[in-house]
Simulated assay, not measured.
Amino acid sequence: MQFHMQEWMAKGLKATVQEKLDVSELFKGRADVLAAGPLHVSLEVAGHEGFVTASGELSIDLDLACSRCLDKVEEHTVIPYFEQFKLASAEEKDEGPEADENDEFVEVPTERLDLRPFLEEAVLVFMPFAPLCSKDCKGLCQSCGENLNERACDCKHEVIDPRFAALKDLFKD
């Protein structure tokens, strides 16, 4: 998904992009992502005077580990996408990253606009932070590791304030 910026801006070109991208490499080595389906891209890319816009939506099916009990959670995520790109001038390249923090444009340093890294970034930003298998998930026992959703364990869950832990043995004979 690469576009020649000057050509798109000068001619005001428009195109609809419908693609499936393999993003499995994006989640390689992550224990919280068990499986990832292809990223479905549905975008309208248009050239304007001085910038190029990409708008539409992305969708992906993810199998994640529950943040409490580690069971599989199936998530279908739909991500609205809108981004405006412009070519970075020589002066803007010298100013550094602080100058463009509040800009509404993403500056592209080369003539070629590759949308893939921007789409991958959107997927990572919109991923659920702490997925849960259910709202009332009890998680795992801290002592024995038993899944408390499946059965209760026999561990003692006595909570003692660590500041008073030395006092608990004071009255023992």
Results as ranks from 00 to 15, higher is better:
Glu121Ala: 01
Glu101Thr: 03
Asp100Trp: 01
Leu113Arg: 11
Asn102Lys: 06
Val106Phe: 00
Asp103Ile: 05
Lys93Gly: 13
Glu120Gly: 10
Leu115Pro: 07
Arg116Gln: 15
Val108Arg: 10
Glu92Ile: 12
Val108Asp: 10
Leu124Met: 13
Leu119Phe: 15
Met127Asp: 07
Glu95Gln: 13
Glu101His: 03
Asp100His: 00
Glu107Phe: 03
Val106Gln: 08
Glu101Arg: 00
Leu119Met: 15
Asp94Gln: 11
Met127Trp: 10
Glu120Phe: 06
Arg112Trp: 10
Ala122Pro: 00
Pro97Glu: 02
Asp94His: 06
Asp94Arg: 14
Val106Glu: 04
Met127Gln: 11
Asp103Cys: 07
Phe126Glu: 14
Val108Lys: 06
Met127His: 12
Phe118Glu: 04
Pro97Val: 00
Lys93Tyr: 09
Glu92Arg: 01
Asp94Lys: 15
Leu124Lys: 01
Asn102His: 04
Met127Phe: 15
Phe126Ser: 15
Phe105His: 14
Ala122Ser: 13
Glu121Gln: 11
Arg112Gly: 11
Glu121Cys: 05
Val125Lys: 03
Val125Leu: 05
Pro109Phe: 09
Glu92Trp: 02
Glu92Lys: 09
Pro97Gln: 01
Asp103Tyr: 05
Phe118His: 14
Glu104Asn: 07
Arg112Gln: 14
Thr110Gly: 12
Phe118Leu: 13
Leu119Asp: 14
Glu95Asn: 09
Glu101Met: 02
Asp114Phe: 03
Ala99Ser: 01
Val108Asn: 12
Glu104Ser: 01
Glu111Trp: 10
Leu113Phe: 02
Val108Leu: 09
Asp94Cys: 09
Glu111Met: 05
Leu115Glu: 14
Pro97Lys: 02
Phe126Ile: 11
Asp94Ala: 08
Glu104Tyr: 12
Gly96Trp: 14
Pro109Ala: 09
Glu95Gly: 03
Leu113Gln: 01
Gly96His: 08
Val123His: 12
Glu98His: 01
Asp103Gln: 13
Gly96Met: 07
Glu107Trp: 05
Asp114Lys: 07
Glu98Ile: 01
Gly96Ile: 12
Val106Gly: 04
Leu124Asp: 12
Pro117Ala: 11
Leu124His: 09
Val108Glu: 06
Leu124Gly: 05
Pro117Thr: 11
Glu111Lys: 07
Phe105Lys: 12
Glu92Met: 13
Glu95Cys: 07
Thr110Asp: 15
Val125Trp: 00
Leu124Ile: 07
Glu92Gly: 08
Glu107His: 07
Gly96Phe: 09
Pro109Met: 08
Arg112Lys: 08
Pro97Asn: 04
Pro117Cys: 08
Asp94Ile: 08
Phe118Gln: 13
Arg112Ala: 06
Leu113Ile: 02
Glu120Val: 07
Pro109Arg: 11
Phe118Val: 12
Asp103Leu: 04
Glu111Arg: 07
Pro97Leu: 03
Lys93Asn: 14
Arg116Phe: 13
Pro97Gly: 02
Val106Asp: 05
Glu104Ile: 01
Glu101Phe: 00
Gly96Gln: 13
Asn102Ile: 02
Glu111Ser: 04
Asp114Cys: 02
Thr110Ala: 13
